[in-house]
């Protein structure tokens, strides 16, 4: 009965409970956001499952270690994505320029011999997304894969909404062009 009551709490209320020391609140929060954040890292970090797991763990450890760092007046989901986006940004900075290219190649040609159309399409879509710059990829994933609103993305990235719209427009255009080119090829 108690667990059910916690599941009905809002994210912000759960964070308040966690800050008070209620461990069950963390379990509920993880069930809500764990898989979603894992997928986000997976998409942002070149479909690397190991990295996605490490980063998800690091993200939730931040919540465990300093739950009071969350301001309950803010939206929890936006705050969580902001933390995740910063972790990704650090990882992009840490990566050497050459290393990224090699990794892309490995991912891109993995299972390339598959004949299924959908798999090929997916492969091309990943390739198109991975070819975007870090900023454009971030906006693209948050908008079209994580289904965040433009206002939320602006808050997560820390840019004006106009900039986000511009980046989205450009990113969508790039992905479309890539897919069109692949289809006609």
């Amino acid at each position: 009965m108690f667990k059910k009551a916690l599941e009905q709490y809002s994210d912000e209320a759960l964070m308040r409970e966690l800050a008070k020391g209620k461990q069950q609140a963390f379990g509920v929060l993880y069930d809500r956001y764990g898989p979603r954040m894992y997928r986000y890292f997976y998409r942002m970090l070149w479909q690397d499952a190991g990295k996605a797991e490490d980063f998800t763990q690091e993200l939730f450890l931040k919540i465990i270690e300093k739950p009071q760092s969350f301001d309950p007046s803010r939206n929890f989901c936006t705050w969580l994505y902001t933390l995740a986006a910063n972790l990704c940004k650090n990882e992009y900075r840490r990566k050497k320029p050459g290393e990224l290219g090699e990794m892309d190649q490995g991912i891109l040609f993995e299972n390339f011999s598959e004949t299924m159309d959908q798999r090929l399409f997916d492969q091309q879509l990943r390739r198109a997304i991975d070819q975007l710059s870090a900023n454009h990829r971030q906006c693209f994933i948050l908008r079209y894969q994580e289904e965040r609103s433009v206002a939320e993305i602006a808050a997560i990235v820390g840019c004006p909404e106009g900039t986000i719209k511009s980046r989205l427009h450009y990113a969508l255009q790039q992905v479309s062009q890539h897919l069109e080119a692949w289809k006609t090829h």
Binding site: R39, L125, Y144, V175
Partner: peptide, 9 residues
């Protein structure tokens, strides 16, 4: 298609 990409992960 974009949304469904890696959705099963």
């Amino acid at each position: 298609g974009i949304k469904a990409l890696d959705a099963e992960v």
